[in-house]
């Protein structure tokens, strides 16, 4: 095989993005568990994962710089490099938003205002979207990417339902404003995470087909 080092670097790039994806999934998952159960211990453990994300992100950036400066990738390889850069930025935002969710569990005292049923469903859909968008990246599957992005509508609908419910609760009883505001922030984070998953899916379609699409 010619250009062995180059092919190794490309493989390393893909692996690093998938590792970043894996840890993003864990952070989202644990943050949701922490906030639903108000598990302070789990929330703190989750926050400790952030430096690992930063190291991975830095490694991806170095690999991309080296590839562009030293190897001049073209065609499908160039699309991999461009989409890896974009996907990394989206995953980093997903991690940031998940960390915000974990921090909410440290702020709410006592119990939740109400059982977080729809919020849990939103979190599950967002987690599923993240898992599938990463799978679509790994297998370069544009159909899976498009199907995954379509789930964003469900997240948006639930966001609206919970949002209205929380606003009504605050209108009826101003004492709940503090707790309800935290929950509004939580659903907003989940809605944004789903949007970033759609961005990942757009990058996957571009990577696989060179087609630039808008999926959200």
């Amino acid at each position: 095989m010619v250009r062995e080092k180059y092919l190794q670097q490309l493989a390393l790039l893909k692996e690093s993005v998938l590792s970043l994806g894996e840890i993003s999934e864990k952070i989202l998952h644990d943050s949701m568990d922490a906030v639903i159960a108000l598990d302070v211990e789990l929330a703190r453990e989750t926050l400790e994962l952030e430096p690992k994300v930063e190291r991975l992100e830095e490694q991806i950036e170095v690999t991309i710089n080296d590839l562009l400066a030293l190897q001049q990738p073209l065609a499908g390889d160039l699309r991999l490099v461009v989409s890896a850069l974009k996907i990394t930025a989206d995953l980093k935002r997903i991690v940031g938003l998940s960390i915000n969710i974990a921090k909410i569990s440290l702020k709410i005292e006592g119990e939740h205002l109400k059982p977080l049923i729809d919020t849990r469903i939103m979190g599950d859909i967002a987690a599923e979207m993240l898992a599938n968008s990463l799978k679509a990246f790994e297998t370069q599957d544009p159909d899976l990417a498009k199907g995954t992005a379509a789930r964003d509508d469900d997240v948006d609908k639930l966001f609206y339902v919970v949002w209205v419910e929380l606003i009504e609760m605050m209108a009826k009883d101003p004492r709940v404003v503090s707790k309800a505001t935290h929950l509004l922030f939580l659903i907003r984070c989940l809605e944004r995470i789903a949007d970033h998953c759609c961005n990942v899916c757009e990058s996957v379609v571009y990577l696989s087909t060179a087609e630039r699409v808008k999926l959200n």
Binding site: M1, V2, R3, Y6, L7, L74, A75, G76, D77
Partner: peptide
Amino acid sequence: TEDYITGRFG
């Protein structure tokens, strides 16, 4: 074409 321009053979 892709294999050639990306240096996978040649």
